[in-house]
């Protein structure tokens, strides 16, 4: 396996939400999460709405300040760095957003949007800036002459290309892709997914690919982490997760994805009910209210993420029991 890029240790993010009558509620969006990201890989992070996957991504980039935990890069905890020193890390870590309409300022031309990162990082020579903008634009498949257009003059797919170019112009090592194809049409998704794969190879990128779409995650990832209500419940190599999913939630998730082939008749694992309220976390495993294989201890003891097989981690009392 390649070398370690980043290690996330016991990361937590708690939001305090103020209710109407001044009553404060705590929401543990990310709850004691630990994992590693290796150089050059794509780690897929899947989970359903509100499971905390986007919050986790934003905490890693310090777009949100985590409540506790550490992120180790180059042997130091980047969460403890003062803002001035952290700015060096900013250019090494970038993000691509889901909504190609909200992620580009409507009053800037594509050129100005792509030039912005260079200006922020002090590139004073306008000729160099022009060259670099043109280079990255052609890499992501944007026509140079279209760069004087405003975002609303581009199609959704083209806008997403601008978003990718903006993230890559500083030549980062690590890119968080937060649902980058979810807002796009089916026929455009493939263009963007292929582009991301190509760029990963040519620019030696590491991706954290956040998505709710298991088919997309399977296509692009090397390893996959499954999240449920703020916790990672399983991490493994891609093939391993799809061939031998261990956590009951992962299994239900996999069985729920419709497959575009009427000949394949699978056994559906239908979960009961909805996820419980995130504001009143239950003791024990957070999945136990919907789990088909729950045991008595599941409602009492929170399972730890344990290694089961080489590189296969799962947080469930069914495995590695004492």
């Amino acid at each position: 396996m390649s070398s370690l890029l980043m290690e996330v240790r016991n990361l937590s993010k708690r939001f305090i939400v103020e209710e109407e009558w001044g009553e404060k509620l705590a929401l543990d969006a990310v709850n004691d999460v630990s994992f590693s990201i290796f150089q050059g890989e794509t780690l897929g992070l899947v989970g359903e709405t509100g499971c905390g996957k986007s919050t986790l991504g934003r905490c890693i980039l310090r777009l949100l300040e985590p409540t506790s935990g550490a992120i180790i890069m180059d042997g130091q905890d980047i969460l403890r760095l003062p803002p001035r020193e952290f700015k060096k890390y900013r250019r090494r870590m970038q993000i691509v957003f889901q909504d190609p309409f909200a992620s580009l300022s409507p009053r800037k031309t594509a050129y100005a949007i792509l030039e912005e990162p260079l200006l922020i990082h002090g590139e004073k020579n306008s000729r160099i800036r022009r060259e670099r903008v043109q280079e990255i634009a052609s890499r992501v498949g944007l026509e140079i002459k279209s760069l004087s257009n405003y975002p609303h003059e581009f199609s959704g797919g083209q806008r997403q290309r601008i978003g990718i170019a903006r993230a890559l112009i500083l030549q980062p090592e690590f890119v968080i892709c937060d649902e980058p194809v979810s807002a796009l049409d089916v026929s455009i998704q493939a263009q963007i997914l292929n582009l991301l794969s190509e760029l990963q190879e040519t620019m030696h990128l590491t991706y954290l690919f956040i998505s709710h779409d298991l088919s997309v995650v399977r296509h692009i990832s090397n390893r996959i982490a499954v999240m449920y209500m703020g916790k990672i419940v399983e991490i493994a190599e891609k093939e391993e997760i799809f061939s031998t999913p261990l956590h009951p939630y992962t299994r239900a998730l996999l069985a729920s994805v419709p497959i575009p082939d009427p000949k394949i008749k699978r056994e559906r694992i239908l979960l009961e009910g909805d996820p419980p309220s995130p504001f009143q976390p239950l003791p024990g495993c957070r999945f136990h209210t919907r789990c088909l294989l729950r045991m008595d201890m599941c409602a009492e003891i929170t399972p730890e993420l344990k290694v089961i097989d080489h590189g296969h981690f799962v947080a469930c009392h069914l495995y590695g029991g004492e």
């Binding site: 026929s187 263009q191 088919s215 997309v216 399977r218 082939d261």
Partner: peptide, 22 residues
């Protein structure tokens, strides 16, 4: 359309996108 979508059951090396836009 069928060859451009990633499938969970049969992974492909590369997707074949439909060029152009709607």
């Amino acid at each position: 359309l069928l060859t451009s979508i990633p499938r969970m059951d049969t992974p492909k090396k590369r997707l074949q996108p439909i060029p152009g836009t709607v």
